[in-house]
Amino acid sequence: METEGTLTRHSRVDRQAVTDAVPLLIPAVPFGFVLGLAMTESDMPLWAAWLSAPLVFAGAAQLTMVTIAGTASLWAIISAILVINSRHVMYSAALAPMFRAQPKWFRWVGSFMLIDQVFALAMLRSDREPDSFRRYYVTTMLLFAMTWNVAVPLGMVIGPIIPEQWRLDFAPVIMFAGLALFAIKRVPAGIAALVGGFVSLLAAGLSDRLGILVGAVCGVVAGAIAEQRITALKARVEADL
């Protein structure tokens, strides 16, 4: 155990994190291309669109931003971005228990890169010791930051050459579907996903993509109710035995 400790102290990279992240990194590349292409076609100045990759670091919101930049009012653009990214409040709440045992600097820095994929992976490894969790989180967040900041500018350059028939615009949809699917480990989580998706479909007509937030909140509540019912049911069955 001691030798293993000395070894890992030298290598800061968490191998498990790399193995876990690669399947999620590859689909992020076509997403980056789609976004890069949209930036070149956007009414938004290129420098501002590009800077959103390292600064905002949220693909769905960035894509909406550059798409509606030409037509929507300033406040409509800002509120659309904020509505789409409001889901991160829930990520922040869910990861707070894991961050409680972390140093202060990491709470500030780590949360800057709390993107969907990093969240999904971190939740899967939430039972790790604080040091090990931090190494895992840092490795994944750096991998995604690097990939994103290469893929988006690359998409600005080669995006216009990619044939539209390749339908790269559909890749992000499959990517997020996969993230959702793999996050389901228990029955209440499955119910949360079903309700979240269904309500989001019903609410798809709401402006500023508010449907995401409405669906998400309903999903979490439904999951909690399911959890409660299942626990009560189990208790009753046990009492009968």
Binding site: R87, A93, F176, L194, G197, I212, G215, G223, A224, E227
Partner: peptide
Amino acid sequence: RALQNVGPAVLAALTVNLA
């Protein structure tokens, strides 16, 4: 405990909305 379901709920809602 309820926050454990944030991932599935949010990501499913996001997927549908993008789709």
